[in-house]
């Protein structure tokens, strides 16, 4: 076995700026989402003392001044503006049966983004906003939309827009141990090295969050899901969070999961919990 808790590993961990977790919890008996969330904030507070925790919703723009200038210029005429308008139009266009999206969601679908994803006890699974958009369609006799881009990202963008600045509020209900299991599954995915390149999400977005890959700094783990869907310059269009997940998973040279797989929904659940206390600020624009 490769890992030995010895001098060498201790030295390696210290070099990476990571201390072996004692209290974090790695199984169902010990895992503690709130402890994880606080530890993550503390980690970034130490790494970037000048950055305000609230500002992590803005990704690397919280920690990298030169890219922030470019991004602020971009945000003056946000590239997602048209998509929000189009999303609003789609949201308010009735289905063939006369009903609409507003009939499927709490509060008519307005100002609810910050509660997603959530644990659904009846169905025993994590529900994402995009998932419920498509369920709404199917329950009303419409065909589901494709998951990654296009109309689903526009509707999601509009719904996020109506929830801007609302504090993210992800719950891991204590009365259902399966919810904690889903959280733990997402956490485990984030920290697990995989693919031919042997990369975990944490390798770049935690451990490597202060150093460059070519000319770019990886987005910090804290705040990573607050601003989705995103108009990504590289795509030249809007895309959903799970589109990005799939791309990132593939970049580790894994055969990637598909959007809305249980794995990705659990990952979103874990990541979104980490952002509790930050505000929802989607849609966003990124390079």
């Amino acid at each position: 076995m490769k890992i030995k808790t010895g001098l060498m590993l201790g030295a390696a961990l210290l070099t990476a700026g990571i201390v072996q977790a004692a209290d974090s919890g790695f199984d169902l008996e010990t895992v503690n989402p709130e402890a994880d969330r606080k530890a993550l904030q503390a980690y970034f507070k130490e790494r970037f003392p000048k950055a305000e925790i609230e500002d992590y919703v803005n990704g690397i723009y919280a920690v990298d001044a030169p890219s922030r200038e470019q991004w602020e210029a971009l945000e003056e005429f946000p590239p997602y503006e048209f998509d929000i308008e189009e999303g609003e139009r789609l949201f308010n266009t009735p289905f063939a049966n006369g009903k609409g999206y507003a009939d499927c969601f709490e509060n008519g679908g307005i100002g609810i983004r910050h509660n997603y994803p959530y644990w659904n006890k009846e169905q025993g699974t994590v529900k994402t906003l995009e998932m419920e958009i498509n369920e709404c369609r199917e329950n009303n006799g419409e065909k589901p939309l494709r998951w990654s881009k296009g109309d689903i990202s526009r509707i999601s963008a509009y719904m996020a827009w109506t929830s801007r600045d609302m504090p993210i509020n992800i719950q891991v209900p204590k009365d259902d141990p399966r919810a904690l299991a889903a959280y733990l599954d997402g956490k485990k995915f984030y920290y697990t090295k995989r693919g031919q390149l042997n990369l975990s999400c944490a390798n770049c977005h935690l451990q490597g969050s202060n150093i460059r890959v070519r000319a770019d700094i990886p987005g910090p783990m804290l705040g990573q899901t607050t601003h989705w869907p995103v108009f990504r310059s590289k795509w030249g269009e809007m895309g959903t969070l799970h589109r990005r997940y799939k791309g990132c998973h593939r970049d580790s040279r894994s055969r990637p999961d598909q959007p809305q797989s249980e794995t990705f929904r659990n990952l979103e659940y874990f990541q979104s919990y980490m952002n509790n206390g930050l505000v929802s600020n989607g849609p966003g624009s990124r390079k």
Partner: peptide
């Protein structure tokens, strides 16, 4: 590179036949 540091970001270029 993981032999010396299991957490390294560096991919194992030979071991994984990259």
């Amino acid at each position: 590179a993981t032999r010396n540091n299991p957490l390294t970001i560096m991919p194992p270029l030979g071991k994984h036949w990259i």
